[in-house]
C-alpha cells in the first residue's frame, strides 16, 4: 500500500503586496502525480526554486493543494479533522534547526512531540534516550539548545521528530549545515530508521552522494517531476542531469572518466565502495592475465 500519493498536485503561492490591487501568484507545483510505497528511501533532487520544499510541506499538510489531492495513508491532507494523525504519520525535519527547537533543555525539546501526543511519561524518556543516542547527542541531554552549534542543534531536531515514531520522515536539506562526520552519522541514522524500523524516508538534498544512498531518486524542475528512477539509472544520464542544474556524484564522474580512458567499468556507479570494488576486481584480473 502506498503511504503517500498525490494526484495532479498543483500549488500557487499568493502574495499581497502593498499598493497592489491584485495578489501576485507564484506557480510552485504543476500537476504532480506520484506515489511512495511503505518503506521506500527516496531522494528528491532539483535546482533551487524547483518546488522541493513546497512539495515537502504538502506531505504533512503544512500547505494544502491549490488543485489536486495529496493522500497520506489514505487520509486526504485537506481533511482538517485528521490533521494531527497526518502530522504524526509524516514527520518533517528542516534545514535551519533554530526554527524547530522549542524547549530550553535538549531532552525536553526531544520529549515535546511525544508528550503532546499523550505518550506515557516512562515511554517518553525511553524514546528521548534512544533518539538522542541515535543522533550522537546523548551527552548533551541536559544542555541548553541555544548553546549548541548549528549542526548539533540539527541533530536534536532530528531526534525530536524521531521520538514521535512517525511512519514517514521528510528531511528537507537536514544535513546541509552539518560537518562531514555529523552528516555521516545522521545519514547512517536515517538509513537505520529506514532499514530496521521500516520508516519511509524522503530526503531532499543537493548532495548527489547522499542521493546515491537512496533506493529511488525523484527529480523536480520548475514544479514538475521530470525524472524518477534508481540512482544507477539516473546517474548514468549525466547530460540530462546537467541540463537540470544537477551533477553526478564525484564517484560517478571519476568512474566515467576512467571508462573514457579505457577501463571497462559499469555505468552509473555512484558509491565509493562499489567503484573501489570494481577497480580492485579489474586490477586482480589484469594481474592474473599478466602472470
Amino acid at each position: 500500500m502506498s503511504i503517500i500519493r498525490t494526484e495532479e498536485l498543483t500549488y500557487q503561492y499568493k502574495s499581497y503586496e502593498e499598493g497592489q490591487e491584485q495578489e501576485t501568484l507564484k506557480q510552485a507545483l504543476q500537476g504532480l502525480s506520484f506515489s511512495v510505497e511503505k518503506g521506500e528511501f527516496i531522494a528528491i533532487l532539483g535546482r533551487n526554486g524547483s518546488g522541493k520544499s513546497t512539495l515537502a510541506k504538502h506531505l504533512n499538510a503544512l500547505l494544502l493543494p491549490s488543485e489536486g489531492t495529496v493522500w497520506v495513508e489514505e487520509m486526504k491532507t485537506s481533511d482538517e479533522a485528521r490533521l494531527w494523525d497526518i502530522r504524526s504519520t509524516a514527520g518533517m525535519v528542516f534545514q535551519n534547526p533554530d526554527n524547530q527547537i522549542v524547549a530550553t533543555v535538549v531532552e525536553e525539546d526531544v520529549g515535546f512531540g511525544p508528550e503532546n501526543m499523550g505518550v506515557p511519561t516512562e515511554e517518553i524518556w525511553e524514546r528521548v534516550d534512544k533518539s538522542l543516542k541515535a543522533v550522537g547527542m546523548a551527552a548533551y541531554a541536559k544542555s541548553a539548545p541555544h548553546r549548541l552549534s548549528g549542526g548539533q542543534k540539527q541533530r536534536v531536531a532530528i531526534a525530536g521528530v524521531m521520538a514521535m515514531k512517525p511512519k514517514c520522515i521528510i528531511f528537507d536539506e537536514s544535513t546541509a549545515m552539518l560537518d562531514p562526520i555529523g552528516r555521516r552519522e545522521v545519514l547512517r541514522t536515517v538509513r537505520e530508521l529506514n532499514e530496521k524500523e521500516g520508516i519511509t524516508v524522503l530526503l531532499i538534498t543537493h548532495y548527489m552522494e547522499e542521493a546515491a544512498l537512496a533506493g529511488r531518486i525523484m527529480i523536480m524542475d520548475r514544479g514538475r517531476l521530470v525524472m524518477d528512477g534508481t540512482p544507477r539509472s539516473i546517474f548514468s544520464r549525466r547530460q540530462e542531469l546537467e541540463a537540470l542544474g544537477l551533477q553526478v556524484p564525484q564517484t560517478t564522474a571519476l568512474a566515467d572518466a576512467l571508462r573514457e580512458s579505457g577501463l571497462p567499468l559499469s555505468e552509473g556507479i555512484c558509491q565509493e565502495e562499489d567503484l573501489a570494488e570494481e577497480l580492485a576486481a579489474l586490477y586482480g584480473r589484469r594481474k592474473e592475465a599478466q602472470a
Partner: peptide, 8 residues
C-alpha cells in the same frame, strides 16, 4: 550550503 550543484 543549500545551493544546487550548478549554483554552487
Amino acid at each position: 550550503a543549500g545551493l544546487d550543484p550548478e549554483g554552487r
